[in-house]
Design a protein around this nucleic acid. Sequence first.
DNA 1: ATCATAGTCGTCTCACTGACGATAAACACT
DNA 2: AGTGTTTATCGTCAGTGAGACGACTATGAT
Lengths: 252, 252
Amino acid sequence: MPYDPSAFPPFAVTVDLVVLTVRRHSLCALVVRRGEPPFQGRWALPGGFVRADEDLAAAAARELAEETGLCAHDPATPAQGNGAHLEQLATYGDPKRDPRMRVVSVAHLVLAPDLPAPRAGGDAHSARWAPVEALLNQGGYGREGEQAAPLAFDHAQILADGVERARSKIEYSSLATAFCPAEFTVGELRRVYEAVWGVALDPRNFHRKVTGTVGFLVPTGGTTTRQGGRPAQLFRAGGATLLNPPMLRPEV
Amino acid sequence: MPYDPSAFPPFAVTVDLVVLTVRRHSLCALVVRRGEPPFQGRWALPGGFVRADEDLAAAAARELAEETGLCAHDPATPAQGNGAHLEQLATYGDPKRDPRMRVVSVAHLVLAPDLPAPRAGGDAHSARWAPVEALLNQGGYGREGEQAAPLAFDHAQILADGVERARSKIEYSSLATAFCPAEFTVGELRRVYEAVWGVALDPRNFHRKVTGTVGFLVPTGGTTTRQGGRPAQLFRAGGATLLNPPMLRPEV
DNA sequence: ATCATAGTCGTCTCACTGACGATAAACACT
DNA sequence: AGTGTTTATCGTCAGTGAGACGACTATGAT
């Protein structure tokens, strides 16, 4: 019964991107304003159709490049450019998620360093970074009277899933370094954890932990004082991808 | 440019199932023999097309019921039948993964208690439990000269991903109880961990750990001696879904 | 000089794990 | 009945690692 080529319903397949970065001590996601109905004028996650002979990860990387100029390197391809981390997140296929037609969307998660300065994509719609807190607490009010309109489609759910993935994944992997520039200090890395988790961490215990985990950080020899205060050692991400034992997210 | 209803390429969307259980001290997966080309006669994961107005999880549950009679309850639906655990695993969409057409498959992971006695699905193809070790070590030789033919399509990769998900998820969640019947002993739960991880665990430390984690196990009052030896207390799964601190998988 | 800021090193305590001894309660033999 | 085997369960002890927090260092700002 299966595999009668004329007997399967056709689907549209898209990729949606949860692009996260840390800006000004808070976790932000890339959103674009929709220029057409449905949800015209609302914010949405960037994304688009998968092409006829294009792999899912390739489609995600292409959309990312179109939208931000970032060059994603997924972990399988260890071409360590200035690229961001890209991984598949989950797939959303509720029959009613798009009112126009049956669309199955394969969401991807991208973790990028700060300040790629979002540029408008091929379309004229605008793009911006928005704090995930404001995007998800649609019931609450943004800090400065920000728009409280929820994201288009089921994108709030997708974003929430992506944020949760990022929050849990930096516990047991070295992925937090994907939010940092090529060289960074322990303090900068700590501020990434604090922004993603939304908690305060003890600088001394954090320093002991990350410098004591073999393969996590390698010193470059340089120092910097860009954060003020005493100069800090600069590090690059080490080869280790899994943290064992993991970073512990403080209770509640 | 996006969302021109005539401008997106049509895809077939399927669900594939990684159904895992523990039988005779080893982790086994449900496989079906393909009755038609391509890969005719080879073993494959059960699965099928998503219907036109069917949710992805619903399609997975339907295929599971057709194939095994199991009633899956996904965690969102806390209808705790004799059902198995079901969750989305990942999506596979390589343009060449199916030689006939462009198929995107949303793989799901099912964890089931032992012995649902696989029944043939709607089709005449046979179904069986096979140790994942034999299915994945296609280069090696099965214990009893089992067939060494690899799984059809990219199903070996999907199975490997599902097994890895199960192995890591029982570390920090109470999901191992999904492999157990409604009432079980600490020893039975330990043998689940041992089978999934492929290691031996110290019975005394394991007992201390699981009985000391609040919300993991609740005693039913009964005892059983079905494993031989001293009678063991019976437990049900408690309300806790996350284990904190996690079970630690022994090194190497 | 003094202060504020941020980084780095140490110490103490507690929780938890791994290794492993000891006891308990069933069954299968003799 | 006794002995051995099997599995369950309780205890002990040492080592690792995390949280709390004191102390010191090196820079820029006032």
